[in-house]
Amino acid sequence: MDTIPVTVLGPSGSGKTLYLASLFRRLAIQRPDTGFFVNVPGADKIRLNNIFRDVAAGAPDVWPDPSLQAETTEWTFTCSLRTEDDAVFSPFALSYLDYSGAFLQIADAWETEEGQAVWDRVRASRFLLLLLDGEKVLRQLDGEPGLTDELIAILNEIQQTDAAVHVVVTKWDLLQAAGHTLRSVLDGLLEHPDFEAFYLDRLNRKSVGTFRFIPVSALGQGYAALDPASRTMVKQVKPGTYPRPYNVEIPFMAVLVDLVRDELRASARRAETAGPLLEQHRQRLERMDGWDGKLSLLRSVLGARPARSPLLRAVQQDVLGAAESYGKSRIAERRQQVEQEIAQVRGQMLQARSADEALTRMAEVFDAVLAEFEAVHPGSLVLKEAS
């Protein structure tokens, strides 16, 4: 199973940890509209669930504390689904690096060993999630350009990579309540010349990964609102209501859909070599059958010219018999080995076929979900990765 590094980028307050906790809650149980489930190591299940539970059920001012500068956490999400024969198939694991957003705004942190490790990870990642705090997005749309100012260092690093970039707008329920669509949010962000330059740079580059804008809400509609006086989020939980995370699985699926297509292409290439390999093994078995008969014929030919004395004739028959027996036993051993190799190749082909069917089914679900998402949020897919 491949583990794919995904780096979650975003300044302090953008909701990185709560997003990952919400992602776990949304995908921990397989649902008809997702078709797969995720697993995380035992202790991390408790940590992520506690983060989500505390925010969902806590007091109005209870939100995840911003990570300390020294804190960096890696969360591994294993993607699993059931094959037609009811076996659990786990083709990929996504390793999310979640670090303190505050350190991006502290110059000294860039010189630390941990700071350098984060940026090394950014440059090595095939997939980057850039989280934009929905509260700050709303303020920028109202004329306060502080969000883009915070993002300059991150955007500068991203432009040095060819990674797929999924820009995730968090706290979407706030923007939706204010009457915004994804198109109006994107148009508003593009009014800032620095963000526009970043956007156009991705579009004009060759050989870069997918570029998407994805609105998400970790708790769902109606769980929080913007307090007019303080202009900060406050929870407004009604008794008997449950959080319904919105779109949190879309960035996860957007990563997996590229991986699934890559794996299916690689599997097709492996299948092309499996057929000729089986034919080679079959020809080897035919040659062994031929040698088996030739040993008996060789003994008959050699035995047709008997030795002159009875003693030598007896020795001759013993030697020929031993030689034939040894030769046949060696052929039988080799035949058994080749038959085992054939069984192994066939087993791998059957397993690969089952895995391919599961992956194909997964890709079909993802394509349907993403197509529906893109229909609801036109313009979300800015740039598609080349096949």
Rank of each mutant, 00 (worst) to 15 (best):
K171G: 08
L186H: 06
Q176K: 15
D149L: 12
N156I: 01
T161L: 03
G146S: 13
Q160D: 11
I158Q: 07
G188R: 03
A163G: 07
D187R: 00
V165Y: 03
A164D: 08
L151A: 07
E157M: 00
L174Y: 09
A178F: 14
G188M: 08
L186Q: 11
D149M: 01
I154M: 12
Q176G: 08
G146W: 06
V169D: 09
K171Y: 12
N156Q: 15
L151P: 09
Q159V: 10
A177H: 14
L155H: 08
Q176F: 12
D173K: 04
Q176W: 11
L147V: 05
W172Y: 06
T170C: 12
T148W: 13
E150I: 08
V185Q: 04
A153G: 13
G146L: 02
T148M: 11
E157N: 04
Q176C: 12
E191Q: 13
L175A: 04
H180E: 14
T170H: 02
A177N: 08
E191R: 04
W172V: 09
G146Q: 09
A178H: 10
D187E: 07
I158S: 01
T161M: 05
E157F: 02
Q159H: 07
G179A: 10
Q160C: 08
T170N: 07
Q176M: 14
L175R: 04
E150S: 05
V167D: 08
L155A: 04
A153N: 02
A153H: 10
L190Y: 01
D194H: 03
L182R: 06
L190G: 03
E144V: 05
H180F: 11
D162S: 14
L175G: 04
E144M: 07
L190C: 07
A164I: 06
V167I: 15
A178R: 13
A153L: 08
G143L: 05
D142E: 13
V165N: 07
A177G: 12
L186A: 03
A163W: 06
A153Q: 06
G179E: 14
P193Q: 08
L182F: 00
V169L: 15
E191F: 00
T161C: 11
E191P: 00
V169K: 11
G179N: 12
P193F: 02
E191C: 02
T181P: 01
E191H: 03
W172L: 09
L182C: 05
K171D: 15
A153R: 14
I152P: 00
I152D: 07
D142Y: 00
G143T: 02
S184D: 01
T170K: 09
D162E: 15
I152L: 15
D194E: 09
R183P: 00
Q160K: 15
V168W: 14
V168Y: 08
L174N: 04
Q160G: 11
T148S: 11
N156S: 14
D194L: 15
G188E: 08
L182K: 07
G146V: 03
E150G: 04
D162L: 04
V169R: 10
V168G: 05
I158D: 03
W172K: 05
G188I: 00
E157K: 11
D194M: 11
I154K: 02
N156C: 13
L182G: 06
L190R: 14
T148G: 06
L186V: 12
